[in-house]
Computed example of a mutant assay.
Amino acid sequence: MTTTLTGEPAVSARGLAKHYSANPALHGIDLDIARGSVFGMIGPNGAGKTTTMRLLLDIIRPSGGELRVLGESPRAGGAALRRRIGYLPGELHLATRVRGRELLAHYAEISGPVRPGAIEALADRLGVDLGRPVRSLSKGNKQKIGLIQAFMHEPELLVLDEPTSGLDPLVQQEFHAMLHEARANGQTVFLSSHVLSEVQQTAHDIAILKEGRIVERSTVAALRENAVRHVRVTVAEPDAATARAVLERLPGVTGVAPAPNGAGTVALSARLDSHVDAFVKAVAALDLVDLTVEEPDLEEMVLAYYGADVSASADAGTAEPAEVAR
């Protein structure tokens, strides 16, 4: 399969809205996801990520706006369109009275052609025993079954809601490799997460969702350029006042705080935004004992959109029933 990034988007939404009774879940979002890309949607629980994904699959229907998926309306495209999509729901409910292999064979009859050996190859990569009854599997192994059914028919579009939930770190890395291979194969991936680091490792384009609205649309690279870095400048104690004055005059440097560091030195910690060049040139003139510049803290940048607490659901009362993978 070969798909370019040009032409009609894999997903296109204009003014997409969804209300549950009097409770708005999506407030008219505009969204384009290029074919052959990995797109990540970030937001806390209740922000509207799952609602957006269910609209793509016609599991629920919009209250307003326009939506096209792989060039078709989800409602008009029906089952034929859904066979071109691989879907992993955020709350995965599987039939438990069958073995994993039998369950996946059933899904293969619904989803369309699956290459011989594809299911077994995915099971080997993810490390799940398909001969065991589903009811005996752990949450992580059930999640692997969900991933296999989404990937096994090599769909044009993968819609993955919190895909690494319950997976151990090694399996998460294998999953990330699967995403990169899918993109190289021309497939489009739309994944959601409330964990920024997961999206950062796999996606190129991202949208930050807050209370049913897209508050930022960017690339991971652009976010990294503008994200806050934590820096630590260590100097000899007699030079501390001069170093502090230099840092406090610099553009983009905030929160300069000195602390004794032992052995007659002082460590000055601070926050640095995108003015990296000016910072490096200024500290190069100091008599440094040590210098630490941490990786850009994208998590901190995203949290700024939500305030101090993102643990509470933003859209109370908009919860929907959990669905079975299909």
Rank of each mutant, 00 (worst) to 15 (best):
Ala308Asp: 12
Arg125Leu: 10
Arg35Gly: 14
Lys210Leu: 01
Asp161Ser: 04
Leu31Asp: 00
Thr2Arg: 13
Ser73Lys: 09
Pro321Ser: 02
Tyr306Cys: 06
Phe175Trp: 01
Val38Tyr: 00
Leu130Met: 07
Glu320His: 11
Ser218Leu: 04
Ala245Val: 05
Asn261Ile: 03
Tyr20Pro: 02
Ile33Lys: 12
Pro251Asn: 04
Val266Ala: 07
Gln172Ser: 14
Glu294Cys: 08
Thr164Cys: 02
Gln200Lys: 14
Arg125Asp: 11
Glu162Ile: 00
Val246Met: 12
Gly43His: 03
Ser73Thr: 14
Asp297Val: 08
Gly100Ala: 04
Ala221Gln: 13
Leu122Thr: 05
Asp277Pro: 00
Ile29Met: 00
Tyr306Phe: 15
Phe279Tyr: 14
Ala184Ile: 03
Glu295Arg: 15
Arg14Trp: 08
Val228Phe: 01
Asn261Pro: 05
Arg83Gly: 04
Glu198Ser: 05
His230Ala: 12
Gly140Pro: 08
Ala150Thr: 13
Gly255Met: 03
Ile60Ala: 03
Leu67Thr: 09
Gln172Ile: 11
Ile33Thr: 06
Arg232Val: 14
Gly166Thr: 03
Pro24Thr: 04
Ala270Met: 09
His176Ser: 11
His275Ala: 12
Val253His: 02
Arg75His: 15
Leu56Thr: 08
Leu272Cys: 05
Leu157Trp: 07
Pro155Gly: 10
Leu209Tyr: 01
Leu158Cys: 10
Gly117Pro: 05
Ala13His: 10
Pro251Lys: 09
Thr3Ile: 10
Leu81Arg: 07
Gly43Val: 02
Val266Met: 09
Arg54Cys: 00
Ala308Glu: 15
Ser274Leu: 05
Ala319Ser: 12
Lys144Tyr: 06
Leu126Arg: 05
Leu16Lys: 10
Gly307Cys: 07
Val128Leu: 01
Ala221Ile: 04
Ala13Pro: 00
Glu102Asp: 15
Pro169Thr: 06
Gly78Ile: 08
Met152Gly: 05
Val266Thr: 13
Ala263Gln: 14
Leu130Tyr: 04
Ser21Ile: 02
Arg68Phe: 02
Tyr306Gln: 06
Gln200Thr: 13
Ala121Arg: 12
Gly117Arg: 08
Ala17Gly: 14
Ala316Asp: 09
Gly77Gln: 06
Leu268Pro: 06
Ser37Arg: 02
Asp58Arg: 13
Glu109Gly: 13
Glu174Cys: 04
Ala243Asn: 03
Val69Asp: 09
Asp205Gln: 14
Asp124Gln: 13
Met152Glu: 02
Ser165Arg: 01
Leu272Thr: 09
Leu126Pro: 07
Leu209Lys: 00
Val171Gly: 02
His27Phe: 08
Ser73Gln: 12
Arg326Ser: 13
Leu31Gly: 01
Asp32Thr: 09
Ser193Val: 04
Leu191Arg: 01
Ile42Val: 15
Leu196Pro: 03
Val302Ala: 10
Arg326Phe: 14
Glu120Asp: 14
Glu225Cys: 07
Glu198Pro: 04
Arg83Phe: 06
Ala10Lys: 01
Pro113Gly: 05
Val220Ser: 11
Val283His: 04
Leu70Thr: 12
